[in-house]
Design a protein around this nucleic acid. Sequence first.
DNA 1: GAGTTTGAAACT
DNA 2: CAGTTTCAAACTC
Length: 820
Amino acid sequence: MDSPEGNRRAAATSSPANSSLVVQESSFFNYLSNLSPIKSVKEVRYTQRFSETSLHIPLPVFTSPRLALQQETNFLERDDAVAAGSNEDGQYKSQPDIVPFPGFEKEFQSCSPSGSIGEYLADHVEVECKNSADLSLQPASYQLSHCEVTGDKEMMTEVHSGVTGTIKASDQMQAILPSSSLALVEAGVSYRDDEKFDEFLGFTYEEINNILVTHKNLDLVSGEQFCEEHAADLNNAGGNYEKQHGIHQPFSESLQIVEANERSDESSRTVTNGTTREEVTQHQRGTRRHLQFEVAFPSNNSIIGSSHSLYNQTCDNIDTQLFGTLTNLINPVSLHSERGAISSIYQEVGCTNSFYPYGLGSCRMGGYYANSARSPPEHDLDQNSSNRSCRSLLENRAMPIRTNNLVNDCTVSPISTITGETNSNMDKDQPEGQAILGTSFATSHSNICMNNILSDPLGVTVEQQTALSENVSPKRKRQRTYINENQGCKRCNCKRSKCLKLYCECFAAGIYCVDSCACENCFNKPEYEDTVLDTRQQIESRNPLAFAPKVVKHASNSPVNVAEEGNWVTPSSARHKRGCNCKKSKCLKKYCECFQAKVGCSFGCRCENCENSFGTKTETVHGRVDTWENLTHEKLNTAEGGADCNNAGSANQFSRWEVLSDITNLTPLSNPCPSTMASSTLLRGCTRFTRDQSQWESNSSPSAGSLNQLCSPIRLVPQSSESKTLDEISSDSALADNMKDDDAFKRPRNMSTPTKAVESMSPSKKCVSSSQHQSDGPRSRTSFDLISDSKFILRAVPSFPSLTPYSKSKDTTNQCGTDH
DNA sequence: GAGTTTGAAACT
DNA sequence: CAGTTTCAAACTC
Ligand SMILES: [Zn+2]
Ligand SMILES: [Zn+2]
Ligand SMILES: [Zn+2]
Ligand SMILES: [Zn+2]
Ligand SMILES: [Zn+2]
Ligand SMILES: [Zn+2]
């Protein structure tokens, strides 16, 4: 408890820290920034775009400009510029210290676009405006980016309308966004250092300029349009580039994007695509991040992370992905910001503050939305806009992570859960209903939560709160059905678990229960943050991966291969972290977690007579799993490059996570689950760097395994050998193990996958990083990844005070470290 | 909406 | 780690 508030507040203050982003440095970005008619980021905001459309408030909160200021991130600036064109909200920027984190951008984007995800957007917007950019923003950013990148005009349109309207659009958005965002991020990261990047820049540069010139006057709105309009151009450019390089990747398609990402990993990666998209997205993102950062910094400690993560593939998958992406994006932001719900998830990061995602409404309260993705819906919605619905709930819901138990939190942290939830919203299938519910609930819930939180975040006694909560959410009907898918709107019907066990989907997702939940004696409410966090820690101590996203993406060779489900496709590579144990369902019903997550069974499954329509155990086996290792590597690689840029270590991590998340999103496409992503995000949050929020934030956000990363970063930096997390993690998840085995490392491509993997892995990574070397053979690879991660981390850390921050939170010792 | 089935989570 | 119990979702009717 306490911490959260304090942290939050701290966050509120601005912190300078930060960091900048990696991207910024690139000449390309600079170029863009210069070009940008738009002007510095500050002015522009993606968010606004969307927000404009749908969101009312939008931007205020985050002013991206700050970010731009801080860092060079021209990149961001550009984005801003683009957005700025409109600049409607110059407000965002209010905060001076902005860190140019990728996350930031994302957040921003999400805001604006948010429409995409309706909830997020709405929430974010409002939230952001208020304070923090929160998760919602992130989502939006993704959307924006996606749109832009993707060029999906339709999407855009929908989004816009959706923004106002809410979530529906979000589904699509989510799907799309993730990939795009990832792509961008990745591209940005990978390219920055990469020679190719320059090349790419050069290639696209001109086109971009042309576009920019043409649209110098772009307003936010115009920016949006611009994006839309030019998305094609960009894509084309990218396509050209690709063609030149033999790469194919249509931006338009999310999948393609994903592929591109993957490719980029290899090297060529969709530079073009990536770049353009990146620009856009980054801008957007940057904005958000900035905002968040700003917020975050102020808060300090707070959070980190949020990123998100997760992708749950399950119902949530799609949604999750979106969320995940959003989250990822957001994470950074959220982390910083506050409460970020996201961070909360990862409380670890947040540890510093201990945020509770839930709802606290970070925005409003300053609270924390832990997960960007998730929680907010209700809370946010209530307060601010109706739009948010699910998303907002998610955000609000996100549970904070406690700083106190950094260790525990870090590792396990709830983050994943949160993200997962958030993501869930995305589900295409039927989100609407949920969304609606979510919104309404969210609203009320958020209000309540917010109030509680605000008044005293933790101050309220549990009992009192419980009473409140109970009253509020007395039982409601069950209806989970869609909820999960929608994610944001998940609801539980717990009768005996008090919503403090993994039996509770809300709790498991790292989100708080909402009014719409029909649970009894629910303690999974912001009022009981402490209880929730403690419980979480306990659970995590038992199983560090408990809150990790259930679905891990593997960077399967064919990243893109996806099985489409509804909207989203789940990459073949995606797997359930632990596998299922089905005896009677043949993995053909939702009883099967694999099936529910829309992923095929893998060798990690113990199912009998598996007939999983997404892939049977036998089928899956051959596919390589990206595993954490792979992901890690890739991410790390990218991260490294990017990290530097970020300046703040955080940025790096952040970027990484983003990448991961993005990747995750991509690969799995939607499915993959955001939840997974989320988790990572959460973990990051754990990072708590708070101190230098920037650093942490960045770190936190990205991390897929937020937990892991959190731990790792912190610990890693220190070095980590201590913790075993990786092993644990790996051990935990069959996937991880598998991953280890695989050659994953070898692959260059699969950015996406890797990312995904990363996400999933991230948690482990954390551990790994810390333990890295320790890990043995099988994991050795993992360790490898870890190592890279650690590098990443290290860099990041260096920039900032790093670790210490952690320590700052209560026990610095993170779970990872401590755990052992 | 009640009741059953299912498999994960929790417990021993 | 295995076996059992508990739990709540998924499913059926
Ligand atoms: Zn519950
Ligand atoms: Zn619930
Ligand atoms: Zn509950
Ligand atoms: Zn199964
Ligand atoms: Zn399975
Ligand atoms: Zn199976």
